[in-house]
Amino acid sequence: MIGNDIVDLKQARIDSNWKRKGFLEKIFTQNEQVLIFSSANQHQTVWLLWSMKEAAYKIYMRQFGNRFFNPTRLECNIETKTKGHVVIGDNTFDTISQIDKNYIHTIASKRREKGVKSSCFKIENTSIKLQSELSKKRVLETYSKIRNIPKNSVAIQKDAIGIPYFFQNNKKQKESLSIAHHGHYCAYVIL
């Protein structure tokens, strides 16, 4: 299983003021707050940790099927500049992040999985609807290439809690997929 999240660092400045009173306490544990305040680039660290939590949460939700909103129940651990893991109760998820000056893209997986296909791209238009359509189109192009099957035989459908799955001729496929967008950036992963 796989999950991803992307943060457009410029958009994050517009959308959220993480210096707002009480904001960090609702999202980050004591240890994570120490990491943020001791880092040279606090804005980047806030959103790196956030994307790790979001990516790991997506897998957790897939595995257990229940939604909850309490980011402090997810504890991030940084191993190297780009690698880390997130602990949710008895579960640990490995993360790998691509840290660009414009965005952070984090992929979480149950174990360091091999054969993950991922892509990250910029879209000028920030309409959620349009971005969602465009990224779906790109994902399906990639997927049909990987599987070597016709593009018009594949589709993406979301289940009741919003998890996307591949379908070929209306039959659910085994590959796991995750799509994220924020601001001007979109990213997807297929495993």
């Binding site: 994050a12 959308d15 959220s16 707002r20 009173k21 009480g22 904001f23 609702k26 999202i27 956030w50 979001e54 909103f69 980011p71 924020h182």
Partner: peptide
């Protein structure tokens, strides 16, 4: 609502 903004809603 993006999930970071859900924190703003709660605040």
């Amino acid at each position: 609502i993006n999930s970071a903004n859900l924190v703003d809603v709660i605040l």
